[in-house]
Simulated scan of single mutants.
Amino acid sequence: MTSYRSAFQGREQIAHGTVAFHFEKPFDFGFKPGQAIDVVLADARTVDVQSGRHTFSIVSAPFESELTIATRMRDSTFKRALARLPVGSLIEIEGPFGSLTLHNDPARAAVLVAGGIGITPFMSILRQATHDQRKQRLVLLYSNRRPEDTAFLSELQSFEERNLNFRLIATMTLMSASVQPWEGQTGMVSEALLKAAAEGLSNPIYYVAGPPGLDAGMRQTLHDSGVDDDDIRSEEFYGY
């Protein structure tokens, strides 16, 4: 696997408990939207070798000049080190890898199903598709507990205005604990919601990314809805 040197450029909170990290994009680094990288913290004084590596889906799109990842800030050795990494610090990037990328036939629509931080590979896909004005129907079904937990929500809403081929269906599962208003869908991703997402689409392909258990649950729900297994794509999600 190819290794690159990069510099840390900054961080920003993008939802409750979720932070985006920005890195310099090596001049010869190329990737496909939906792929992932290993981030290796090179300073042995900061973190031990075993805990100094973590895999993340790439949030940024290939047309952008930086590399961005996003993650829930859980209490791990790596994430504690990442949280206090000084701007300008050198890190290593290995990759890219992963196959959760859009199919080649733009005549077939894509329904993207994301749970929580599983949105990250789809952000790269949707940013690139909107930038390119890709002539392909794309629907994102995005589940979170509350609006304040929903990473990139305002950007995704803006995509609907900028990309006539994109539709967002966001649903919240714990509005009783929210302090923000929400007028959209509520409840878990159901067979009915999946059918609503696919309404008007001819022979779509489904992509699934999210917390452990989401893949199996969505595959079963899609199977119960009559979707062929060959039209459901997922892989081990990178980003926790």
Rank of each mutant, 00 (worst) to 15 (best):
K135H: 13
N165F: 10
S190N: 04
I169E: 07
A114D: 14
A192Y: 02
R167N: 05
G118D: 09
G187Y: 03
M175Y: 02
V189S: 00
T173V: 00
I117Q: 13
P121K: 08
N144L: 07
D132Q: 02
E191P: 09
Q133K: 13
A129V: 04
T130E: 02
G118R: 01
A177R: 15
E161H: 11
D149H: 13
T120E: 08
D149N: 15
A129T: 03
T150P: 01
R134M: 09
G118F: 05
T186N: 04
Q128C: 00
T186S: 07
D149Q: 12
F166E: 03
E148W: 11
W182Y: 10
M188R: 15
P181C: 12
A170W: 04
F159H: 01
L140A: 09
M175H: 02
A192Q: 10
S158K: 06
R145I: 00
M188Q: 11
S124M: 12
L141I: 13
L164H: 15
L164Q: 15
L193I: 07
V113G: 01
E191K: 13
R167D: 09
Q185H: 14
R146F: 01
E160T: 12
V189W: 03
L126I: 08
R146E: 09
L174W: 12
F122Y: 12
E183I: 15
S154H: 14
N144H: 10
A151P: 09
L138H: 14
V139M: 11
T171S: 09
L140I: 11
P121Q: 09
V113D: 04
I119R: 10
S124K: 08
Q157F: 07
T130W: 07
P121F: 10
L168H: 03
L193N: 09
S124Y: 09
Y142K: 03
L193T: 08
A129D: 03
I169H: 12
L174V: 06
L164E: 15
F159V: 10
D149K: 11
L112H: 05
V189L: 07
A170T: 05
G184N: 12
W182S: 04
V189M: 10
D149V: 09
E160F: 00
G187Q: 06
E161C: 05
L168A: 04
I125V: 15
F122M: 10
E148R: 05
G118P: 12
A177G: 13
H131Q: 13
